[in-house]
Design a protein around this nucleic acid. Structure first.
Lengths: 120, 120
DNA sequence: TGAATATATGAACAGATATTCATATATTCA
DNA sequence: TGAATATATGAATATCTGTTCATATATTCA
């Protein structure tokens, strides 16, 4: 290339400086996937509801199911998704297993999302 | 029911006070769905990457495609999803259409998500 | 120990979604 | 106007995801 900034692949404004700056500020690919995975966990209304319930109080599986009017298996599957994402933790008390939130950022994340929806 | 607090449907700690408190603090169903829909938009790595690119600079469709090494159609489809969610806006300049972010909360949302991933 | 209860989990299925391909639309410029 | 270019979009397809059903596991208690 004759000119350092001449790397124009198409219509746009691309030049090597810009591409370099974008690459530098872009998180690693692995992290971007993790990020999408995390958001995808929040991208289901059942899981959002479970989290809202847990904002109030720790709760056993069958009480969550009762409150959300869904069957136990569905809740259990979704709790596993939340647990795998390290968003909830649990403790056993006899036959009962109590779930609670395991992340300090979720409330703020939800508040930000709400702010977008309420319009900003 | 003989007792006000006797509404125990299963194993758990459910009583009317708790259910009442949870219902009061739970956003409306419509809003919960909107919330999940919003998060689902972020739940795809292509869209996350597009947003990170747009954190740096407004950008035309084909430059985004070039940077992300994806085809123009895929980017265009995803930009539509982002546009429908009011997360990006665009301006036309001749044949070229420049996209940019249209939300002040997204950066904070992403920072919170990153904080969770980096572990907190 | 055996019945009852709380939760977890694998399989199956229906519905959603991301990408690609082909093509349409819109704009510029010769 | 017609060629070239940038973007949008419908259809098709492969993959992913949420729920249900049936059943397994774990714990309590008589």
């Amino acid at each position: 290339m004759a000119d350092d900034k001449a790397k124009v692949d198409c219509c746009g404004v691309i030049n090597e400086d810009l591409v370099k700056r974008i690459s530098e500020n872009m998180p690693d690919d692995d992290l971007l996937y993790d990020m999408a995975d995390l958001f995808r966990v929040f991208g289901d209304s059942t899981r959002v509801k479970i989290i809202y319930v847990l904002f109030e109080s720790e709760m056993c599986v069958c009480d969550i199911a009762t409150i959300l009017n869904m069957n136990q298996s569905a809740i259990s599957h979704q709790l596993r998704v939340l647990k795998d994402a390290r968003l909830v933790k649990y403790r056993r008390d006899g036959k009962t297993i109590y779930y609670s939130l395991d992340d300090e950022h979720v409330k703020q994340l939800f508040d930000q999302a709400m702010a977008h929806l309420m319009h900003g």
